[in-house]
Amino acid sequence: MLNSKFLYTVIASLFITSAVFAQSGADISPKRKQAIDSLALEKVRDLSKYISIIGDKRTPFSEATRVMDRAEELFAPDSEMGVSSINKKEVSYYKVRKYFERLMALNYDRVSIEWYNIFYISDLERQPDGRYVGVVTIYQRFEGTSDDGLKYKDTTKKDITIYVERKKTQIAGRTVEFWDVLLGDIKVTETSA
């Protein structure tokens, strides 16, 4: 009984985190920057994986919903996708969840989502509130096929905002500092590659 009470405290404290910022003006060392870069890239890859699962027609509805929840957890609140195509420069805006739902509901019998192995990571810049922000660029190839043989193909460039923040949390009575990496707005541009 006592044990589970203790555990609840631990778990609760996991989610009551307080932000701590690196010393004002102090930059992130190259080595640390590299570790954060690969952490950010991992989150982006996780998102790619989740998008592939959500888009896959063989994924059962319940699994797709669970994966959508997990994918949503990668994002900072209020994140949006801004989508533009070659023919239409105008940006269409979708909330992240809406974008996933649209992806799941696409009317193709077979969908293939593939990712290019290429990525680009920007510098991390400090924003007024002290958090760091960067952009990771990746490329995705989409192919949807209907049973009647109709095919739709595109390659999109995805510029993904990443927010990096140093946070503190209590675990089993001790303070653990960690890097919180959250994804933000994503610009999706159709490319002619």
Binding site: S52, Y116, Y139
Partner: peptide, 12 residues
């Protein structure tokens, strides 16, 4: 990293 990778050298 990725599950499905595009294997197209020229594109890449």
């Amino acid at each position: 990293g990725y599950g499905q990778m595009v294997k197209d050298g020229e594109d890449e």
